[in-house]
């Protein structure tokens, strides 16, 4: 019993359980699909098939294997998404700061923020492309725009959520506005800031892929649509799906790890 309890409480147990569950569910459905659909690989292939295509050394466009192609295109898409994410995060933080400093800025900027957020990515993409004139840059900009909103709103909520007494305490110390921000508001808003980043990271990646599909060039999305149109093996599509899922999880874990490093006080350890 004790051993069982230790296994259940262990850090890795959830990861293992989670993996086993998703593999099982995937395979159950893959079997159903295999016997009920005419082209099972279009609906849900077996994981073994995807694995096989990943490990395959057969070139599919004369020079690259499926995996090589996916990785090269992933590099392009993810670097755009990554750079856009970092720019959007920085801008989002600065805007939150400005909105908190001035009620006027908040009142003026907030409706625009909402508006930008409501324009569908697919509608925004051609406009941004026309403005920037470069496919790569336009996708970075779109990733930045999508990152910007959740980071800005969450950070602003973090600023506003600071206890009234903390403001009064700083007031009683005759602290300058700069000191109020450096000593109180900015450290206090960090958990909310990281929440915003966690929401934004997968959005930046999925938006990048989506815009790829629309505009072509190099990128995961282009590869995705080519594979769907039958220009190359359908397993490329499944490799991309798998890769995107892994990248999404990794970005979440990575931001969580940075958060733990920056805000160690959030850990639930008793000393």
């Amino acid at each position: 019993m004790k051993v069982l309890k230790r296994i259940i409480n262990s850090k890795y147990f959830m990861v293992v359980l989670w993996t086993v569950l998703i593999v099982t569910i995937w395979e159950i459905f893959a079997f159903i699909v295999q016997y009920t659909k005419r082209t099972p690989v279009n609906v849900l292939p077996h994981l073994s098939g995807i694995l096989e295509s990943i490990l395959s050394t057969k070139t599919i466009n004369g020079s690259q294997t499926a995996l090589q192609m996916v990785l090269v295109n992933a590099g392009a898409t993810l670097s755009r998404a990554g750079i856009g994410f970092l720019i959007g995060t920085a801008l989002g933080f600065v805007l939150a700061l400005l909105m908190n400093l001035s009620g006027t800025v908040e009142k003026v900027a907030f409706p625009y923020l909402m508006l930008i957020q409501m324009i569908p990515v697919l509608g925004m993409a051609p406009i941004i492309l026309a403005l920037t004139g470069d496919i790569g840059t336009s996708r970075t900009v779109i990733a930045a725009i999508l990152t910007f909103y959740p980071v800005a709103t969450n950070t602003l909520a973090g600023f506003k959520g600071v206890q009234k007494e903390k403001h009064e305490l700083m007031y009683s110390y005759a602290a300058s506005k700069f000191q109020v921000y450096v000593k109180t508001l900015i450290p206090a808003c960090l958990p909310s800031f990281f929440t915003g980043m966690k929401i934004a990271a997968p959005m930046a990646v999925t938006a990048s892929i989506l815009v790829d599909t629309l505009q072509g060039g190099i990128g995961l999305g282009c590869l995705l649509s080519q594979s769907l149109k039958g220009a190359m093996t359908r397993y490329v599509f499944w490799q991309i799906v798998l890769l995107s899922a892994i990248v999404g999880i990794l970005s979440f874990v990575l931001i969580g790890a940075i958060e733990k490093k920056v805000c160690p006080y959030n850990q639930k350890t008793k000393g």
Partner: peptide
Amino acid sequence: YGIVFQGAVLYDWRTVKKNVMLPLEI
């Protein structure tokens, strides 16, 4: 004057000592 509120209003990202140092840093 120094002020003490109903809640301790401590800074949870600062250690106990750093909390006491806060006004001195200011």
